[in-house]
Design a protein around this nucleic acid. Structure first.
Lengths: 134, 134
DNA sequence: CTATATGATACTATATCAGTATCATTTTGT
DNA sequence: ACAAAATGATACTGATATAGTATCATATAG
């Protein structure tokens, strides 16, 4: 199981590159070069980041993407959630139906604690901390 | 993304039930009752646990499964690995090919640390601690 | 007004997850 | 000996997630 999948990974690379460029707007072509992934796939990733409010875009000639916030305020946990959804025990893996006995709920409780700590760790990592120019 | 999937979850329930019974051998029928899952699916799960050395089985009339070790020596992390594989950044998500620049490797390093802590937390939870009769 | 950029959306292939089914083999009771 | 009762091995199916591609619409600079 992977905590970080490819979309998230590529997203982080693109964001770190944008961070290096200190708020500049870059085209997909620039980012494709920096990240090393196919253009259509990166486009999809960038569009999701825009929808999530992490990037701002501009259409048309000279258009492209820039960070919507300074890189020290963009967290790995947030980026990861965009592409992989939240870390969730959702209270119960099975809806309410099966979570009837308390040894199971013990597991749930322990997992919730672990997931909470994990989420905090992921939210402690900023894009800035992953930049080249730190 | 789920840290614990259904197979792992059912496995833990079955193991905790076996732990409650203090080393007794139980049939699949008994475990189906305790866990609340279909018989063929539970059978598959129990077989994997046997292959992993967590359960011992006995065929034939009066056969069934028992814990291969005391429940305080069976860890959630190990059970999880049987069904979901190891937590892995495997050094690099992409093999060596793409992990060429060091901002990416920073991410790798941070993820390795996080995954290490997570694995230790999962290995700190014993089946015994999930039993009813604790 | 057209070339260039992103936006929205739908499609495809592969892998993983969740679960079922079947036949072989071992063991026990009669 | 033999039939019943148990697990072993294995293969199959359907649903969902992952990884990626393709296409047409829309906005903007020059």
């Amino acid at each position: 199981m992977r905590l970080i999948n490819r979309e998230t990974d590529y997203a982080v690379r693109a964001l770190a590159h944008l961070g290096d460029k200190a708020g500049e707007r870059l085209s997909v072509s620039d980012l494709v070069r920096a990240v090393g992934v196919s253009r259509p796939f990166l486009r999809k990733i960038l569009q999701k980041l825009e929808q999530a409010g992490i990037l701002e875009s501009r259409k048309g000639r000279g258009g492209g993407f820039k960070l919507a916030r300074p890189p020290e305020r963009i967290m790995l946990g947030e980026v990861r959630t965009v592409f992989q959804g939240p870390l969730k025990t959702e209270n119960c893996l099975f809806g309410v139906r099966l979570c009837y006995d308390y040894k199971t709920c013990r597991l749930r409780r322990k997992m919730r604690d672990i997931e909470g700590r994990l989420a905090r760790e992921l939210d402690a990592i900023t894009i800035q901390s992953l930049q080249k120019d730190l």
